[in-house]
Simulated assay, not measured.
Amino acid sequence: MGVLAVETYTRLHMEAVACLWEAMMEADRHDVASSIHRAFRDWGTVHMRHAAIDLADFVLRVYESMSEEEKFSLGPYDWEFVPAVLRQVDWVDGSAVHLNDPRAVADLILWRPAS
């Protein structure tokens, strides 16, 4: 794939990436004992920026698994929801590791057991 090759992303994907990046930077600054802080130190900013791109689709699937009432209960997408999903991610061997089931992650951030 050349430098000018284009992958197609929606506006929602781009918003998710921007919100993830902001949440990742915030977590890195404020939680030096976290796996995300270690990931930034071990793999670098470029790698982590690409990880945000890769993780955005999962964030969107978690969001879509929730009802409108559940989404509203979490507060703002960028300041509450995305950081809550990010807290469910562990960073191992250069990759974001999370549950595969978006609804299970939604249940975790809504403080309910997965069904």
Rank of each mutant, 00 (worst) to 15 (best):
R41F: 02
V89D: 02
E70W: 13
R41S: 11
V92P: 00
M25C: 10
T8V: 09
A33Q: 06
H37P: 02
A27F: 00
L12F: 03
E22R: 10
D57W: 08
L108R: 13
W43S: 07
R61F: 00
L74H: 11
C19Y: 12
D90K: 06
V105F: 06
Q88R: 14
P83L: 10
M14H: 14
I53D: 14
F58A: 02
W91Q: 03
V3I: 13
A18K: 11
F72V: 13
E70R: 12
V82M: 11
G94Y: 00
N100D: 15
M25L: 08
A16N: 04
D42S: 08
R11Q: 12
R11D: 14
Q88H: 06
D107A: 14
R61W: 00
V32P: 02
G94R: 08
I53L: 10
E7R: 13
H37G: 05
D42M: 08
R87F: 01
R11M: 13
E70P: 10
F58C: 01
C19T: 12
A33W: 00
D90G: 04
F81R: 11
R103A: 07
V6S: 14
L74A: 09
M66E: 08
D101E: 14
Y63I: 09
T10C: 07
Y77K: 14
I53S: 05
S95F: 05
E69T: 15
P102F: 01
H13A: 05
L99D: 12
V46S: 09
A27C: 10
V89C: 10
E26R: 11
P76G: 14
R49M: 10
T45P: 01
E15L: 09
E70V: 10
A106V: 10
A23D: 06
F81G: 07
L110W: 09
A39W: 02
C19W: 09
D78R: 15
L110I: 06
S34D: 00
R41Y: 04
G94F: 00
L74K: 12
A56F: 13
A114Y: 11
L99R: 12
D78F: 07
R103T: 03
A96S: 05
S115V: 14
D107Q: 12
M25S: 07
L60A: 01
V105N: 04
E26C: 14
R112F: 13
